[in-house]
């Protein structure tokens, strides 16, 4: 079945859920995301209770540390990458493989931009003495934002693998659900970031 060559006319309406395996993948990625909800909730809750806590006389605090312009640019990059992956899925529905590959590549580039800024930010903090082991606050901050960053890395590796391995094969019902699952995961990364920029950065600056 997987070898079937499709045309736009024969391509099913919901390629991401057209076979039993695809349905399993579809439900599976969502169930996995549910487990990620409590994973992030645990790290997040810990961050909130350790915010600004450190050795006596610590000079670092969220209000002083975080820079909104950087957070804003990162937010825009990630949010836009969410839209571009929607475009990729739009082209998948229309059996336009080139469209899928192009938009997924743009998604990856935006994600890389986000990651570069995050690395720059971390580097900057470490440089001014706010390293991972500096205080409870720093450990919690790097763990929270770093866990999100790790998800970005995983998402990027995943999408790049898909783009590369399918470049010669084209779209079929075996790999369409994989693209779809990766895009759902990517959106979820954005969902988490919404909370991070609101609670960590915006509310952090407020003190």
């Amino acid at each position: 079945m997987e070898e079937t060559k499709f045309t736009p006319q024969t391509w099913p309406d919901k390629p991401e859920q057209a076979t039993p395996e695809a349905k399993n993948k579809f439900v599976g990625i969502w169930i996995f995301i549910c487990s990620d909800i409590t994973l992030f909730a645990s790290v997040f809750a810990t961050y909130l209770s350790l915010k600004d806590k450190g050795p006596a006389g610590m000079e670092f605090s969220a209000a002083e540390l975080f820079e909104l312009p950087l957070a804003f640019v990162m937010t825009m990059l990630l949010l836009t990458s969410s839209l571009t992956s929607v475009y990729a899925m739009y082209h998948m529905k229309n059996y336009n493989f080139k469209g899928v590959q192009i938009w997924m590549t743009i998604t990856v580039l935006l994600g890389l931009g986000f990651l570069a800024l995050e690395i720059y930010e971390f580097y900057h903090y470490v440089h001014i003495g706010f390293g991972y082991t500096q205080s409870a606050f720093s450990s919690a901050f790097f763990t929270l934002v770093g866990t999100h960053g790790l998800h970005v890395v995983v998402g990027l590796v995943w999408i790049v693998c898909l783009i590369v391995r399918n470049a010669k094969r084209g779209l079929n019902l075996y790999n369409a659900p994989k693209y779809y699952a990766a895009s759902i995961f990517w959106h979820f990364i954005d969902v988490v970031w919404v909370f991070i920029f609101t609670v960590v950065y915006l509310m952090g600056v407020l003190g």
Partner: peptide, 9 residues
């Protein structure tokens, strides 16, 4: 790291 170490918060 210092999640549980009270000396470092």
């Amino acid at each position: 790291a210092n999640f549980f170490d009270h000396i470092n918060g």
